[in-house]
């Protein structure tokens, strides 16, 4: 900014605030050399800045104004008077100070113009200016509770996860093994009537048994009573009926009841056999000679003790193990 008699006050302020560059300071010094009468004004302005910055104005905002008022009768510098004018319009003078200032203005008509000019430095807000679309700033009340909602949702998710996983069987549980075996169709292989003559004592002896055609027909129809009994998951006679099905029909049965047979776990079967005084033999330990004779129905290689059930004649199993007669 070029310094001249119109701009020197701003340059003075910038100088006192340390905003001038070296070049501008040099221009200022040159300007003061050409206008020595303005040096006093710069000095007064500098004193004012130091006084206001260093004094305890926070505790008593009008201290320096009181000092200035005491000098009112001998005022020679306009700046002191102007400070009092500003203080007057800023509401920083008390009643006595205001009275003294007004008396001074009355006695010096030239000061009246300056005093009135300061009255116009107070700006007023244009109330017609309003923020448009104020409703976009507003919020709904429920949004104020995000933390509570998130806490509740978290607890709900955790509890739901715990409940869900508690409902899932363990991968190696007996129930799961049973389902897998049945799903593979191994469980439904029908044993041929009769046994190997040299069957070991430990092997369950199979006796003659006739296929119940009526039962078979019922089993082929999933909606039959036998099927319903079968699906009840607790009916041993239905379990036996499944065992009694010929191989030619196992596919139908498999399709109808695949994955639904959960009756006896291997451990349960083993316990039942032992309670009846019947030895349990894992197929892995038996030789080919010890296996029951299977004519046109072949047993699949045993993968678990559950396959022993496939070697048992249904009626014998019903009678000897379950202690009841097979259904007619």
């Amino acid at each position: 900014m070029r310094i001249n008699k119109d701009t020197y006050e701003l340059v003075f302020i910038d100088y006192l605030e340390g905003h001038l560059t070296d070049r501008e300071i040099a221009d200022l010094i040159e300007f003061l050399d050409q206008n020595p009468e303005l040096e006093a004004e710069l000095k007064t302005l500098s004193d004012f800045s130091k006084q206001t910055a260093n004094s305890d104005l926070a505790e008593n905002n009008s201290t320096f104004l009181k000092d200035s008022l005491k000098r009112l009768p001998i005022i020679e510098q306009d700046s002191n008077f102007e400070e009092l004018c500003i203080a007057f319009y800023e509401g920083q003078l008390n009643g006595t100070e205001e009275h003294a200032l007004l008396e001074l203005i009355d006695t010096e008509p030239e000061l009246q113009i300056t005093f009135e000019q300061y009255a116009f430095t107070k700006i007023k807000a244009d109330k017609q200016i309003q923020f448009p679309n104020k409703h976009t700033l507003k919020k709904s009340a429920r949004v104020l509770w995000p933390n509570y909602l998130s806490y509740a949702a978290s607890v709900f998710i955790v509890l739901g996860a715990i409940y869900y996983f508690n409902q899932q069987p363990l991968p190696n549980s007996p129930q799961n093994q049973t389902e897998e075996v049945i799903a593979d169709g191994q469980f439904l292989d029908y044993p041929k009537v009769g046994t190997e003559p040299n069957a070991p004592k430990n092997t369950i002896q199979l006796s003659a048994n006739e296929t119940n055609s009526e039962t078979k027909s019922k089993l082929r129809n999933p909606k039959s009573k036998a099927s319903k009994d079968y699906n009840s998951s607790t009916n041993h006679s239905s379990w036996e009926q499944i065992l009694a099905q010929p191989n030619t029909e196992k596919s139908n049965i498999n399709q109808s009841y695949k994955g639904k047979l959960i009756y006896i776990s291997p451990a349960q079967l083993q316990n039942m056999l032992q309670e009846k005084g019947m030895a349990f033999q894992d197929e892995d330990e038996s030789s080919d000679e010890t296996k029951p004779v299977i004519n046109d129905y072949s047993l699949k290689p045993a993968t678990s003790p559950l396959n022993l059930a496939t070697s048992v004649d249904p009626s014998v199993f019903q009678k000897q193990i379950l202690g009841s007669q097979p259904p007619k």
Partner: peptide, 13 residues
């Protein structure tokens, strides 16, 4: 306070 006083003086001038 100093800034406001300076601003007032500038406005008046």
């Amino acid at each position: 306070k100093v800034y406001i006083f300076r601003a007032r003086k500038f406005l008046k001038d």
